[in-house]
């Protein structure tokens, strides 16, 4: 839309009918290369997008077929007819027996029994490490330690699983005499190695992002270092620290190799941390190689996949929202 021309009278308006040299200089150029490059990038973006969508679609398509083949309630329990005619309700994962049982209850409990203790241990050590790095350690040491944490976060999980198997299991077997040599406790210790760096570095970030004025204000009022941390820094960083714990928990739920190698893999229903358990991830890992495509068992494993996907996706989403809220709050 072009508005009407103004009329400032004392200055001559140039004659528009006559094309000026300037007009020629700024005429449209056809930039074919520019356009091709743009489409090239767009195609790549679209392809990446397609893959992302495919993962969602494909996983859910295969997973939901499980509901047709097996039924939702069968993922919780099965009513078994006993020899004497009575009916017994069983919560078992036994997909290869003649009367296949697909209850996810033992697997979910197994996952929680490794992930929750793992997250608790990691919270204690991780938050302490985060506070140490941000508030206690001298800056030079911190410069060195921060990349170290990152380095440890990069250790392949199969290595941690191996360490728990080769060293941890024997050590705690002698020390605590657990029910099973490989158990939820061993697995949760292994998980801690993965989660501690996550919680530590995100906690450090959260604490570090708190403006120094706040610290100075507290010290100015005569507070000690600990009082400042306890009453000023930690409350201000609370959401960031929570987000790091949520992310760590999500990671613990989704971790495969450590639990596969160290948890014992027996689908027990137990609250005893020193017994063997079997997690959702380890179940997929151990059984996917053997199933035939299109069998109930195959779809059941995909169903576990979407349960895992959904849980971790939402945990990540929550953490992200919490973190972005914190960012907004902390930008003054």
């Amino acid at each position: 839309m072009i508005a009407e021309q103004s009329h400032i009278t004392d200055i001559k308006t140039p004659d528009r009918s006559q094309e000026s040299s300037f007009g020629k200089k700024i005429k449209k150029s056809i930039r074919i290369k520019e356009r091709i490059i743009k489409y090239f990038f767009a195609v790549n973006g679209a392809m990446a997008l397609v893959f992302i969508i495919l993962i969602f679609v494909f996983l859910f398509k295969e997973g939901f077929k499980a509901l047709e083949h097996i039924g939702f309630l069968d993922f919780i329990y099965l009513d078994q007819v006993q020899a004497d005619g009575s009916v017994k309700r069983v919560y078992e994962w036994y997909p290869t027996s003649a009367e296949a049982r697909y209850s996810l209850v033992p697997l979910i409990l197994g996952t929680l029994l490794t992930a929750i203790p793992g997250t608790i241990i990691s919270t204690i050590f991780g938050v302490a490490a985060g506070i140490y790095l941000s508030e206690v350690a001298n800056p030079k040491l911190k410069e060195f330690l921060k990349p170290m944490i990152e380095l440890f976060a990069g250790i392949p999980t199969v290595v941690l699983g191996f360490i728990m198997l080769a060293v941890g299991a024997s050590f705690f077997n002698d020390l605590l005499n657990p029910v099973n040599r490989l158990n939820a406790f061993i697995a949760s210790l292994g998980l801690s190695f993965v989660i501690i760096p996550i919680i530590a570095s995100l906690t450090e970030d959260a604490l570090h992002s708190i403006p120094n004025d706040l610290r100075m204000a507290s010290y100015g009022l005569g507070a000690t270092k600990w009082q400042t941390i306890r009453h000023v820094i930690l409350p201000a960083a609370f959401s960031g620290v929570s987000a790091s714990i949520i992310l760590g928990f999500g990671r613990a739920i989704g971790e495969t190799m450590i639990v596969l190698m160290a948890s014992g893999n027996a689908a027990n229903i137990t609250a005893n941390i020193f017994e063997s358990v079997r997690t959702m991830t380890a179940t997929i890992a151990a059984e996917m190689g053997e199933v035939s495509q299109g069998s109930d068992h195959y779809y059941a494993l995909f169903f576990i996949g979407i349960v895992l996907f959904t849980i971790t996706f939402f945990l990540n989403l929550i953490a992200e929202i919490v973190i972005s809220k914190m960012r907004k709050k902390n930008t003054f």
Binding site: A3, Q5, P14, S20
Partner: peptide, 10 residues
């Protein structure tokens, strides 16, 4: 909205 003319060219 509106126009900017440089040497008479919008």
């Amino acid at each position: 909205q509106g126009e900017v003319l440089i040497e008479g060219v919008n």
